[in-house]
């Protein structure tokens, strides 16, 4: 891993955030909403509207509005919410924190379940455990989050009354309450991930088990357990880092639905609220922060992979 490689990766993040900002700004600019009307209400006078348009610079060419927005955004200033009048930036970052808690918990649960599932399926290829795993993965990817969420809530909250159906509790104030409230959302978010990742782990493990160097390790007399732990699993699980990073994008999308259903004040729910209210600054900030998070997660995964896997030469 050379310095130039890291420089290139950093430059790539900058470019990614740039493209995303253009995309987000472009889409939201076409929104059939007049920011001035949204702010002052339908009954505002023409003079008042003109004044606020002037103040917001809505008459300027679009590229100038973009540059102004980006210029403020890099300092963390995303403007004021049209709905609440509060600064958007801090609100979105706080919401992102709650979403990341949910996301990390879901990824942790997924790893605990999916990795052993995939490995066992590969080691016992064609046996019952393998068939069951592939059944689970077919079913898992077929239920969209809103269906899983609703079904889980119906079963675990309404019928069995084990868990609260909705709401969010800060882990700093009430850790046990936070766990109980996060259980359903985390469970929901991890289903599709488990289905996908267990499938990938299975195929990676199979590839490694059939590789020449695992065969060589067996034929030089190493016991099967050593072959599996020292030679096969280590190499099979390395690519999982990349797969998980790619799934973060899917997870962030799913989080929008999950937070909406379980009433968690994360970034996804903030975005939904903003979209419904046509709150431009909030939509822009939320979308940009979410996408930047994903871009950073991907880069971190690449760096981690490069660090763990000695094979790849980055020059």
């Amino acid at each position: 891993m050379s310095l130039s490689w890291i420089l290139r990766r950093l430059l790539l993040i900058v470019y990614t955030v740039f493209v995303v900002s253009v995309l987000v700004f472009g889409i939201t600019q076409v929104l059939p909403a007049d920011a001035a009307v949204t702010l002052l209400g339908e009954n505002a006078t023409a003079d008042a509207l003109a004044a606020i348009r002037d103040r917001l610079g809505l008459g300027d060419p679009i590229w100038m509005q973009y540059l102004r927005w980006v210029g403020h955004a890099v300092t963390g200033d995303f403007g004021l919410s049209m709905r609440t009048g509060q600064p958007v930036g801090p609100e979105m970052v706080a919401a992102l924190g709650r979403s990341l808690l949910l996301a990390f918990a879901a990824i942790a649960l997924m790893l605990v379940v999916a990795v052993p599932l995939g490995v066992v399926a590969a080691v016992r290829q064609g046996k019952l455990a393998d068939t069951l795993t592939s059944l689970v993965s077919y079913l898992g990817v077929a239920f969209p989050e809103f269906v899983t969420a609703t079904l889980f809530a119906m079963l675990l909250a309404d019928t069995l009354q084990w868990l609260p159906a909705t709401g969010y509790v800060s882990p700093f104030e009430d850790p046990w309450g936070a766990v109980r409230h996060l259980a359903l959302p985390v469970l929901t978010a991890s289903v599709i991930l488990v289905a996908h990742v267990s499938r990938m782990v299975r195929s990676e493990t199979l590839d490694v088990l059939h590789s020449d160097y695992v065969r060589a390790a067996r034929l030089k007399g190493l016991p099967e357990r050593t072959v599996l732990t020292r030679h096969a699993l280590r190499n099979a699980l390395l690519p999982v880092v990349t797969i998980v990073a790619l799934d973060v994008g899917y997870l962030l999308g799913g989080i929008i639905v999950i937070e909406e259903i379980f009433a968690i004040p994360g970034i996804g729910r903030q975005l939904m609220v903003a979209i419904t209210a046509r709150d431009l600054p909030s939509i822009q900030a939320g979308a940009l922060i979410m996408s930047a998070t994903y871009a950073v997660a991907n880069t971190l995964a690449d760096v981690a992979y490069a660090f763990l896997d000695k094979r790849i030469r980055y020059d």
């Binding site: 020449d212 160097y213 390790a217 034929l219 030089k220 190493l222 030679h231 190499n235 390395l238 094979r311």
Partner: peptide, 24 residues
């Protein structure tokens, strides 16, 4: 078998680049 392989019969393969574990 593990007591025969390596100890009593060794083997050298065709492609040395794939016969060694790349991460050790």
């Amino acid at each position: 078998l593990t007591r025969v392989r390596g100890r009593r019969i060794g083997m050298v393969f065709q492609d040395p680049s794939t016969s060694l574990n790349p991460t050790l």
